[in-house]
């Protein structure tokens, strides 16, 4: 493990993130569109039957969505690097594969945490109180979820040889992961075969953990699993994905 090498890999990802205007704008706009356009319409229908508003219910889900997209997208830089040859510059350097994977993981995780946490500033405007304690817990939770999803993305990216493959991943893995995570509706109401998918989806547990912290307990829209289960599932998933992705970068 080389500290300097990991540092410069992280630094590069940050520079690229803040230089790509389109990516920045998308990052800010996407959660706002979900909350204030989709959310505003649905609030009118769902409001009456639950504790709190639907827009409030959406906030943990939108935080989860932002982290999901950000984490997966940041690992696409690996595919991008492969396509443009830059990955080789890293692979022939005297640094271990683990260092490269850790660098990418740390960069993806911190960018996701940054974006996920930024959304908490919206909470007061939709009538949710987030105190210092909640913010503090959310920081650790977003870090854990970001880490696990970045590791997952890295594992996928290690096997992708072209950017076209990324579109397939986006439509058949990332979007279903978002829709079947409890971000938009409680997963308990789903038909059995879809519920089965939500049970393996790590984002389900991530979003559920956010709900524990951000939403009042009780009512139709509250968290559905025990908090401890949420944390353990995401943690185990993160560890497994880290191991798999480190192995995926070995030479063939």
């Amino acid at each position: 493990m080389s500290y300097r090498a990991a540092y410069v890999i992280v630094l590069r990802e940050f520079k690229r993130f803040f230089r790509q205007r389109g990516r920045l704008v998308t990052t800010i706009a996407r959660p706002l569109i979900w909350l204030f356009i989709v959310g505003a319409g649905l609030t009118k229908i769902i409001d009456a039957r639950s504790h709190g508003s639907y827009m409030q219910f959406m906030l943990p889900g939108v935080v989860g969505m932002t982290i999901l997209f950000s984490s997966i997208f940041s690992t696409i830089s690996v595919v991008w690097d492969r396509e443009f040859g830059f990955l080789r510059e890293m692979l022939v350097a005297p640094v271990s594969r683990v260092t490269i994977v850790i660098g990418k993981l740390f960069a993806g995780t911190s960018l996701s945490v940054l974006q996920g946490m930024a959304l908490l500033f919206i909470a007061p405007f939709i009538g949710l109180g987030v105190g210092v304690k909640e913010a503090f817990i959310m920081f650790f939770l977003t870090a854990l979820v970001s880490f696990s999803l970045t590791a997952f993305g890295l594992f996928i990216a290690a096997h992708l040889t072209s950017l076209e493959g990324f579109n397939v991943i986006m439509n058949f893995i990332v979007l279903p992961m978002f829709f079947l995570s409890g971000a938009l509706y409680p997963v308990g109401n789903l038909p059995a075969f879809l519920r089965w998918v939500t049970f393996i989806n790590p984002l389900t547990y991530g979003v559920d953990a956010f709900k524990h912290v951000l939403l009042p307990s009780g009512g139709a829209l509250a968290a559905e699993f025990p908090f401890v289960l949420d944390v353990i599932y995401v943690g185990v998933f993160a560890a497994a994905m880290t191991l798999f992705s480190a192995r995926a970068f070995e030479r063939r």
Binding site: S2, R4, A5, Y7, V8, I9, R12, E89, M90, A93, P94, V95
Partner: peptide, 9 residues
């Protein structure tokens, strides 16, 4: 600079 740091300078 990226290269230098990668090579531990």
């Amino acid at each position: 600079k990226f290269h230098c740091y990668l090579y531990g300078m």
